[in-house]
Design a binder for these strands. Structure first.
Lengths: 337, 337
DNA sequence: TGGGCCGTTGAAATCGATTACAGCCGGCAG
DNA sequence: CTGCCGGCTGTAATCGATTTCAACGGCCCA
């Protein structure tokens, strides 16, 4: 009668050694004699043994895995970042697990269940999680915030200079000769959206351009809100000649809707996006946008969490990654008045 | 001197009961007396106790979590599916963990490490994983395949009728009057791509339309391969008047490139996609495509894995979900010759 | 010849929660 | 008055790997 699953004890028996020796053979091969090592290898092969992670985790008090909390997997923006994270973590022997913090059936307080017995580290991409669930205590694993951040939480941040990115967009439009520039906002609650809006205001002021509240259109980063923004723009008596959208998704929605209503981009309105998601190089017109180094963001986040897991005492740092204007076809000089 | 982490034993001490009673109070509140329950509750609050998952997993031999293996998180196609999975699993008290099977640093044999001590169930969205890593044995948790599948693996499948979907696209084009219809293929190795190509051939034959090998253009589902497909199409002496692309991403790339070269869609060429990803309703022209019920696919996959985890003996089933043609602006009757 | 050290190994404690089993107590039926 | 049952609780075994500690054998050097 055979057991369901071979244990280390079974391997030990087959190899004629003790469980301790099998454990050592598998995790520190250099401390056991070559003959023993070989015997263990053979026994493992013969029994089909694989380690029981739960038991190891319990004993070692670590899981060798990092959890990423992303606000919305539906947003293609996160994909490449996660790939960067995964690559760096894998090299260090860690697993990456991705958890969506949104959607029906998902608990807002999911972060509370992510204690040290679940993950050795946490990468938070969602700036709207309740800070009280993430305050450092002896249960919470090391944590970094990436892209978005939570104001009331002291933790290392990896992010881009959102205000500067918005500034690049505005400066580009100003350089083309636009003097009436609007901004399609991200969701009010979102820190990125606020930082970008601030950048817009600053740069407009720096160019002595008007900052008109009615030219700041509400949006929420989504395609659909891009369309709504377009309708708002069309409905204006006194339309800006250029609109900087706080996300590429909104820019796509905006362009689609104005085109449908008979306007041309960039002749009738110049449009700038933010993110440089894959698709925007392949729409018509190709979108001028602010590139975020997504892979690098992921790499950086992974490196910081690794160092934090190695030495929890590291002070909260703030990594600012550079952004870049990608000039394509959706912007041009404004039509002569 | 306080411990790093409160254990169930500490709670027991504070509450003046045994660890067993604390455990019962927390997991089966109805078997302990109301006073004891209250005492335990208070002690938990006072100590700030949270359960150690590693210990519980070890004892109970289950993790209450399901792992989804997706071929490429970068593909926005998976997002809504995963949301559907997550919603159903959450209701049953299970966690969903997402693992990307691609990218540098990620082991092709990742599936081999996902034994019962890691996950109670597996949902595989990647048809190209090595089947030998997934053969059922006593270590492998219950498994379902969703969207894609692996030919040599006996496991429940949740998928759409790819051939029928392709048929809908071709029938639609035929109905509009197209007689010269091309197909931009998915990656050769991919089962979905093959199923769709078969569907194309069948439906063409059913309409007595020519099946010309040179009209089957190579592609790999990516945006960039859509552009290449467009260049191939343009280079042809004898161009089809309509092209059915095996993915929406390719359709976007295709449209962008033909537009850039001065062709109009749908006047010069009708284009049909496959998937109905969010964005394609917001490009110009809005894309006619085959909708996959992504949320339902996720729900169905979750339900099947749940029933499999409850009763491993269930026979391999095959769930076929319906697809639907979404008619938008990228298709019209062919120009008069 | 004896002492000490190194390389290797095994016995047993440990990680922290769950649960089988047994015991206790009060109430009720015979 | 005895015996049994049911509700509640505690003791101790258990899950499976890791790791501390001690011990063993062989070798070198004094």
């Amino acid at each position: 009668m055979d057991r369901i699953t071979p244990r280390i004890r079974d391997v030990a028996q087959v190899a004629g050694v003790s469980p301790a020796t099998v454990s050592r053979a598998l995790s520190k091969p250099d401390v056991v004699s070559p003959e023993t090592l070989e015997a263990v290898r053979a026994a493992v092969a013969q029994t089909g043994y694989t380690i029981n992670h739960a038991a190891r985790n319990l004993r070692q008090k670590r899981t060798m895995s990092v959890v990423a909390l992303v606000p919305n997997l539906a947003n293609p923006f996160f994909s490449r970042i996660l790939a960067g994270v995964s690559a760096v973590l894998a090299q260090a022997g860690y697993n990456l697990l991705v958890v969506d913090t949104e959607g029906p059936g998902v608990d807002r307080h999911i972060a509370r269940t992510l204690d040290r017995s679940r993950a050795d580290g946490l990468i938070v991409f969602d700036g709207l999680l309740p800070p009280e669930d993430l305050q450092p205590d002896r249960l919470r694993p090391p944590l970094v915030m990436a892209c978005e951040w939570i104001e009331d939480l002291a933790a290392p941040r990896i992010r881009i200079d959102n205000a500067a990115g918005a500034g690049l967009a505005i400066a580009h439009l100003a350089r083309l000769g636009h003097r009436r520039i609007g901004h399609l906002l991200g969701p009010e609650a979102n820190v990125l959206a606020r930082a970008r809006a601030d950048g817009v205001r600053q740069e407009l002021a720096a160019h002595d351009l008007p900052v008109r509240p009615e030219w700041f259109l509400p949006g929420d980063f989504s395609l659909e809100s891009g369309r709504r923004g377009a309708r708002d723009w069309i409905a204006m008596a006194d339309r800006p000649t250029a609109v900087f959208c706080a996300s590429d998704q909104m820019a796509c929605g905006f362009i689609a809707e104005v085109q449908r209503r008979g306007f041309r981009v960039p002749q009738d309105v110049s449009v700038v996006g933010f993110d440089n998601i894959d698709l925007v190089d392949h729409i018509t017109p190709a979108l001028t946008t602010i590139r975020q180094p997504r892979w690098s963001i992921g790499e950086a986040a992974a490196r910081v969490i690794l160092s934090l897991m190695a030495d929890a005492a590291a002070p909260p740092s703030d990594t600012l990654l550079p952004v870049e204007l990608i000039e394509r076809e959706s912007t041009s000089a404004p039509a002569a008045p």
